[in-house]
Nucleic acid binder design. Sequence first.
DNA 1: TTGTAGGCGTTATCAA
DNA 2: TTGATAACGCCTACAA
Lengths: 335, 335
Amino acid sequence: MTNIRDIADHAGVSIATVSRALSKPEVVRPETLEKIKLAIAELDYQPNMLAAGLRRQRSGNIIVAVPSILNPFTAAFVQGIENIAREAGYRVLLGITDSDQTLLDTYVNMIAGKQADGLILLDVILPTIVTQADNGVKRPPIVAACEYPPGLNIPRVRQDNVEAAAVVVAHLARLGHSQIAMISGPEQQQMARDRSAGVRLGLRRAGLACEEALTAEGNFTLESGYRAMQALIAGARPFTAVCCANDEMALGALAALREAGIDVPGQVSVAGFDDLRFAAYSSPPLTTVEVPTVETGERAMQLMLDQLRDPDDAPREIVLPHRLIVRQSTGPAPA
Amino acid sequence: MTNIRDIADHAGVSIATVSRALSKPEVVRPETLEKIKLAIAELDYQPNMLAAGLRRQRSGNIIVAVPSILNPFTAAFVQGIENIAREAGYRVLLGITDSDQTLLDTYVNMIAGKQADGLILLDVILPTIVTQADNGVKRPPIVAACEYPPGLNIPRVRQDNVEAAAVVVAHLARLGHSQIAMISGPEQQQMARDRSAGVRLGLRRAGLACEEALTAEGNFTLESGYRAMQALIAGARPFTAVCCANDEMALGALAALREAGIDVPGQVSVAGFDDLRFAAYSSPPLTTVEVPTVETGERAMQLMLDQLRDPDDAPREIVLPHRLIVRQSTGPAPA
DNA sequence: TTGTAGGCGTTATCAA
DNA sequence: TTGATAACGCCTACAA
């Protein structure tokens, strides 16, 4: 391992000068700088960031806690975070939690262990340290890019899921649908609750009833959407449209409808949520709500940088816009 | 920051004993251990892993270099890597390269900078240090979980893409297809080349010609599959089946066929590759080749652990099995 | 503009 | 079984 001392010897200067040459080159004489650069090149020197981190008390790592990376929706957030992190000289550590509380807390503890400088939460669960607001200890830098129960005072970036879901229903109502079913997400998750609430809000606004019999709960997976749709089809109540709490379930629902020989959108209209890339290529292409996933990740990382710069900065909340994307899976209600 | 010295003072022992209590508790007297544990709990101590890493000369991080995390195929590999990494006490650093050589080399350099102990390559490009085999320097721990030109002597885990693609063609030939088109991946990528070669091999085995006019090149995205299929449809040569080099392109192709009013599999059969979750829910569900993505990631990380344990361990190659999954997008050739 | 020297918080070697 | 102490490689007052 060639270290800063080797460079200093080789260039005939002190280690302090080498260090300066690397961090603020403007304060070292050009000729000296040149000698040092030469030595670095000749010895193929690479500064030990572990040592630098130890000294500076920062690792340069940001943990991103996600339940699973297999979800393309989540993956897009991570991409956004990485974009900004890299620019700012931070690395992204992946913390896959499987929605396990203990595991998530382990990741949070890595901040205390100096393995990371902060954590961005994309999870449906919350770290113990965040929920135990009563203890006087100051929280490590945490930014949320997910829905969570209101009242927690941490920086966050989110979408207005309630309003967005209501907009979907308005779109269906405008098409003449009055029997609108819903495939909701797991009710333990705030995001699922918000989207369900939005659907109900939209129904109210349209003067329509929200019937329990027209609601099926899934868990945001293709499979669960497929099953939920089968359940709705088997149910007694007729319907001409379905709002799904995410695109995956909507795509699963489309498969179930196709299997049952029900035409979309001729007999039943289907709407999703998230605008996954796959949604534009389904059969038929899916009407959905575009969620600025990559941008959400970017803003979350920006919020993290702010927190890191000034820990006393008051937590802020950023709400990003959504956009209804009408494709061919929704159409006029059958006569 | 409470450190090991605080614990030592609080427990009335030396820092050496505290360190031992944490790393090999069996060599310290039970009563002493108890005192130390108490102190750790009371002071809420968390060892500084940066310092430990500096001393031990290891960071405990593994970089995973991926072109993009948005690709669900890639994401699955990462999941597999994380599974094993976590078990072994390693963290996964995400290195998104956008297939940029400079960026990839930056990630590789992080090993020299001690920010990571090794790198797992899921990329289509190769680090400069790997291709410049002539320089005598020993390579940092790198494991490949992707296709790359033969002749490079680094540990790797892969699938037999050639044989797998040939099996797909055999399946189509058995169904009576003789005019088989292909939507290939970008030819710069080894994986794309292998899958194309497999298709040609399959055609030869079935005694069928491989016609240039029946080949369209895509870039592994939905969009490119869609466009490639449009091109094939517009082409002069008729065909009754299409082999796509991955599921994304196959799903894009299905969309194009649907739009053109061509029945699948009635008029044209479509086969994909990878078995994405979405493939089982397309319309119609996609015949494809299951690639053990998560397991590939797991094996790659295992190979990495082996390398880390014994750097002189000879590079090994693991070939994982594939499996044809027949769904409804392929059927008998029309009469 | 440059050099000296004292940490940063561990681990590991060697004695005791 | 425990303790004293020297690294690990870097950064940053402070002094020159």
